[in-house]
Each structure stands twice: as structure tokens, then as C-alpha cells.
């Protein structure tokens, strides 16, 4: 069957084709100007699903990154505090050994006792160290200090640790990954000891021994060594945790890069391709316009005189 062609049918189909060309150009231009392949879900439903999942992943990674920065800050505070405490305890041990020298006079022993008390006060303020107003050795307590002191009428001081809940110090943790958490606080009870066992009470005993004429401060050397090694354990655990945080951070960085790349692959346009498509679409459009100008003009009337 030969199709009948009339001016009207030609005009209609030409218009329809020009419209198609224009629509294709408009869609390419929209892609180019928005820079994304998916502006509504129906552009690519599977891609939309990926975009949503990847965006969520990206958001949680950003949050893990923030958590890791916070963890680093906590652990840095712990680390520097524990280093100072270790120095202080070493100093206290030296003073205790000095005090064991039987040739020392009462005045010299008093001087040593005063210095030991100074060291104790330093340790106490280190144990109450804070980060952003929160005591880093007090677990989840909101007492404001990790150790409280009370002085009895006879001058004896007692120390109590505020962080203990149900016999242990609850951990303060930061999430660094979907299944990775790291403890960022220090267990004050384990590091500085609690109550009578605390390093502060111990130093008080050393000072008392130095002040009494026949006291022997060196009997506490073993206890001081034990405390020193507990502190060292705490300090090295902080180092180990800092390593975990660093490792998690670098893993986060590389997976963030991965996710960003994947997101780009799913939703970003290939600029070169879109430009090329746009160019060829433009050529097609111009061709269609040229053809229209030629075919719609003439009729038989132009040739009859």
C-alpha cells in the first residue's frame, strides 16, 4: 500500500519530529546543566536505590570520622595526663628512696614529706583531668571530678572514686564503624586506685612515715612500684586504642573515597559524552529544520503559469 502524503500530514509529522528533536535536546541540556543523570527516581530506579544507599553510607562515614576525631581528642588527653602521672610517681619513688636514708635529719624528712604531698596534689589534679568539661577518668559519672577528697578531724584524708557503677567503671565508647567501637576513657580506679588503695592514700602514708621519727618510708616502695606498673598498663592500653583509632580513620578515608567514586559513577554525567550527544543532536535538529524549510514550501502552483 502506498501511503498518501499531503501537505497537512507532512506538516504534522515534521512538527512531531521537530518536537521530538527539541525534547531530546532539552533532556540533554538538563543533564548537562544539572550535572546529574538522576534528577527524579524514574530516570534510573536501580541507580536511585544505589544513590540512596551510598548517600546513607557516606553520611554514616562522615559521622564515624567525627567520632574518630573525638576519640583521638579523648585519648590524647588521657595519654598526656598519664605521661605526667608516670613522671610524678617516679619522682615520688625517688623521694621515698631518699627518705629511707637513715642519716637524714627531721627537717630534711619534713621537706621530703612536703614534696611528696605536692606530688600527690599534682596526681590528684591529673586524675581529675577533663576534656570539654568532662572528666576523662570518671566513666559515665557526672560528679565533675573522678576522685573526691574528704579530710577527717584528725587530719587523715580519704579518697573515693566516683566512676564505679556495679563494681566496675562503665566504658565510654565511640563508634568508628558499623561494628567497631573503641573505648576512649580511662578507668580511673584501675590507674590511680580507689579509696585506701589509691596512689593518693599511699603517698599520704609515705608522708606520714617520713614525718614520724622512726617511720620507714621504704616499706611502701613495693606498693609504689605496683601502682607505677598499673599506670604503665593504662598508658600502653591508651596507646593501643589510639592505634586502633588511627587504623579505623585511615580505613574510613579510603572507604569514603570509594563511596564517593561509586556515587559519582552512578549519578554523575559523563561530560564528554553528553557534550558529544548534544552536538550530534544539534546537527540532527538543524538538519530537520533545513529539510522542513525545503519540503513545506513548494506546491504545484509554483510551477504552473
Amino acid at each position: 500500500m502506498t501511503t498518501r502524503v499531503t501537505q497537512l500530514s507532512m506538516q504534522r509529522s515534521t512538527l512531531a519530529n521537530l518536537q521530538l528533536n527539541m525534547a531530546a535536546m532539552a533532556s540533554l541540556q538538563e543533564r548537562m546543566s544539572s550535572g546529574t543523570k538522576i534528577s527524579v527516581p524514574s530516570d534510573d530506579p536501580a541507580g536511585t536505590s544505589d544513590v540512596l544507599a551510598l548517600r546513607r553510607q557516606q553520611a554514616s562515614m562522615t559521622q564515624y570520622g567525627r567520632n574518630a576525631d573525638d576519640a583521638t581528642a579523648w585519648l590524647t588527653t588521657l595519654d598526656s595526663t598519664l605521661s605526667s602521672s608516670l613522671v610524678s610517681v617516679r619522682r615520688a619513688r625517688d623521694l621515698t628512696v631518699q627518705g629511707g636514708n637513715g642519716a637524714l635529719g627531721a627537717q630534711a624528712r619534713e621537706a621530703l614529706a612536703t614534696e611528696i604531698e605536692g606530688v600527690r596534689d599534682g596526681l590528684l589534679s591529673q586524675a581529675n583531668a577533663t576534656y570539654l568539661g568532662r572528666t576523662v577518668f570518671a566513666g559515665t559519672s557526672n560528679a565533675g571530678v573522678a576522685f573526691t577528697t574528704a579530710t577527717a578531724a584528725d587530719g587523715t584524708r580519704t579518697y573515693s572514686y566516683t566512676g564505679t557503677v556495679n563494681g566496675e567503671t562503665p566504658a565510654v565508647e565511640r563508634r568508628l564503624g558499623d561494628d567497631v567501637t573503641v573505648r576512649v576513657d580511662g578507668d580511673g580506679a584501675a590507674v590511680y586506685g580507689d579509696g585506701d588503695d589509691s596512689v593518693f592514700a599511699l603517698l599520704d602514708k609515705v608522708a606520714a612515715a617520713l614525718r614520724s621519727p622512726d617511720g620507714d618510708p621504704t616499706q611502701y616502695l613495693d606498693a609504689i612500684d605496683a601502682r607505677y606498673s598499673a599506670m604503665l598498663t593504662g598508658s600502653s592500653s591508651v596507646g593501643a586504642r589510639q592505634n586502633r583509632v588511627d587504623a579505623a580513620k585511615s580505613a574510613l578515608q579510603s572507604s569514603t573515597l570509594n563511596v564517593t567514586t561509586q556515587l559519582g559513577n552512578v549519578q554523575d554525567i559523563d561530560l564528554a559524552q553528553v557534550i558529544l550527544d548534544l552536538e550530534s543532536q544539534q546537527v540532527a535538529y538543524q538538519g530537520a529544520l533545513g529539510a522542513t524549510a525545503r519540503t513545506l514550501q513548494p506546491t504545484l502552483l509554483d510551477f504552473l503559469q
Binding site: A46, L52, R134
Partner: peptide, 30 residues
């Protein structure tokens, strides 16, 4: 444990849970 934040962490994990609001919404959009 007044300064414990573990529930905040647990709630923040709802975003990744399979039946969570995000998953429900993503499947609706798709």
C-alpha cells in the same frame, strides 16, 4: 550512668537497620 551515651549510638544505628525508616523510605522511592 548519667553520662552514658550508648542509647544515642543505638538510635543512630536505626538508619542502617534493614527494617528502619530509611530502608522503608528508600524502597518506597524506588
Amino acid at each position: 550512668k548519667p553520662l552514658d551515651g550508648s542509647v544515642g549510638d543505638a538510635i543512630s544505628r536505626l538508619g542502617a537497620s534493614a527494617g528502619g525508616p530509611d530502608a522503608t523510605w528508600a524502597s518506597a522511592v524506588v
